[in-house]
């Protein structure tokens, strides 16, 4: 193991790790937006919206994220969608993550006891009031951990943007392997940085979950 080499490339890996974090945060935000809309559609009274929600989930979970990303980035310009690699990465991965989050959020909402909706509606609350004041606060607590699992998967999936040349961790590792021929050190370093990111996010999720439980 060449520690001197690791020390030399480390600042570049740190910068790349920052790109991975940024990519993850933006992807997670977009995923949560898509997931909330998807869950709302899947639970809607409108048959059309329910169908669209279900189609969204099955298409994006039923095809490789890499294909979705390539389709967007390489295929997009052909139909007039011009995105740089980072934008394509965020949108491609975010919409993909949203499909998984749709199911997580929907699952948490329907896991809240039916009696809760009944009690709220019996008082005279509208569907939305019952959702907003009774169901969602309880569903939020239930969805923190499973959303944490989705976010964990999404962080690892950011490695998929390496082939479209976003300078994040995996791409950086590959690039330095090209110039140093030291794949062991480079992949190990990238792996450790991924692990640190994921463990940190895990801590935050655990903290949020505990806080939600006490409140």
């Amino acid at each position: 193991m060449d520690f001197e080499l690791i020390r030399t490339v480390f600042p570049f890996f740190l910068k790349a790790a920052w790109v991975t974090v940024l990519l993850s945060v933006l992807t997670a935000i977009l995923g949560l937006i898509c997931g909330s809309l998807g869950a709302a559609a899947r639970l809607s009274r409108s048959r059309v919206l329910r169908f669209l929600g279900a189609a969204y989930v099955s298409v994006f979970r039923g095809t490789p994220a890499l294909i979705q990303l390539f389709l967007l980035y390489f295929g997009g310009p052909q139909i007039g969608i011009q995105l740089d690699a980072f934008q394509a990465g965020v949108i491609g991965l975010g919409v993909n993550a949203g499909a998984y989050m749709t199911e997580t959020i929907r699952g948490a909402i329907i896991a809240v006891d039916r009696g809760q909706t009944e009690a709220a509606r019996t008082i005279g609350m509208s569907r939305w009031q019952a959702m907003r004041h009774v169901i969602l606060p309880q569903a939020m607590r239930l969805m923190i951990r499973p959303l944490g699992v989705n976010i964990n998967a999404l962080i690892k999936a950011t490695a998929l943007v390496a082939p479209i040349s976003v300078v994040e961790l995996t791409y950086t590792a590959q690039r330095y392997i090209g110039s140093t021929y030291r794949p062991f050190e480079m992949f190990l370093l990238a792996g450790i940085l991924y692990l640190i990111i994921i463990l940190s996010v895990g801590r935050v999720v655990g903290w949020l979950d505990r806080k939600a439980r006490i409140a």
Binding site: G115, Q116, E118, A119, T122, G124
Partner: peptide
């Protein structure tokens, strides 16, 4: 209408 009709359930259904 439901505001005018109070209902109490077997399993309470408190929030």
């Amino acid at each position: 209408i439901r505001q005018e009709i109070g209902m109490v359930f077997q399993h309470f259904n408190l929030f």
